[in-house]
Amino acid sequence: MARKKRISELNDAQRAGLWALVALQVSLAVSAWADLAARPAAKVNGSKGKWAAIIVVNFIGPILYFTRGRR
Rank of each mutant, 00 (worst) to 15 (best):
Val57Ala: 13
Asp12His: 08
Ala52Thr: 10
Asn11Cys: 11
Glu9Trp: 05
Glu9Arg: 01
Ala41Thr: 07
Ala34Thr: 13
Leu21Lys: 15
Ala41Lys: 05
Ala16Cys: 13
Leu21Gly: 10
Leu18Gly: 05
Ser27Lys: 14
Val44His: 07
Trp51Gln: 01
Ala41Arg: 00
Thr67Asn: 14
Phe59Pro: 06
Val30Thr: 11
Leu10Gln: 11
Arg70Gln: 09
Gly61Val: 10
Arg68Gln: 10
Trp51Asn: 01
Val56Lys: 12
Asn58Arg: 12
Val57Asn: 14
Ser27Glu: 14
Arg3His: 06
Leu64Glu: 08
Arg68Trp: 05
Ser8Leu: 14
Ala16Gln: 14
Gln14Gly: 00
Asn45Val: 00
Gln25Ala: 12
Asn45Glu: 03
Ala32Glu: 06
Ala13Trp: 08
Ala16Thr: 14
Ala13Leu: 08
Lys43Cys: 01
Lys4Ile: 10
Val44Ile: 15
Ala41Gln: 06
Ile7Pro: 03
Ala32Met: 01
Ala37Lys: 13
Asn58Pro: 03
Gly69Gln: 01
Gln25His: 08
Tyr65Gly: 00
Ala2Lys: 05
Ala37Asn: 11
Ala32Gln: 04
Pro40Phe: 03
Ala2Asp: 04
Ala20Thr: 04
Arg6Pro: 05
Thr67Lys: 15
Ala16Lys: 15
Lys43Pro: 01
Ala52Leu: 14
Leu36Asp: 01
Val22Gln: 09
Thr67Phe: 13
Val44Pro: 01
Val22Leu: 09
Pro62Phe: 05
Arg15Leu: 15
Leu36His: 06
Val56Thr: 10
Ile7Phe: 15
Ser31Asn: 08
Leu21Pro: 03
Ala20Asn: 00
Leu28Trp: 04
Leu64Val: 00
Arg68Ser: 08
Ser27Cys: 08
Ile7Asn: 07
Ala29Ile: 08
Ala52Lys: 14
Gly49Val: 02
Thr67Ile: 11
Ile55Thr: 03
Gly17Asn: 11
Gly61Pro: 04
Asn45Ala: 06
Pro40Asp: 11
Arg71Asp: 09
Gln25Arg: 13
Arg6Gln: 06
Ser31Asp: 02
Val26Ser: 13
Ile63Ser: 02
Asn45Asp: 05
Asp35Pro: 02
Trp33Ser: 04
Val57Trp: 13
Ile55Met: 03
Arg39Val: 12
Ala53Leu: 15
Ala34Pro: 02
Ala42Cys: 04
Phe66Asp: 08
Leu18Trp: 02
Phe59Lys: 12
Lys4Glu: 10
Lys50Phe: 11
Gly69Ala: 03
Arg68Leu: 13
Gly49His: 05
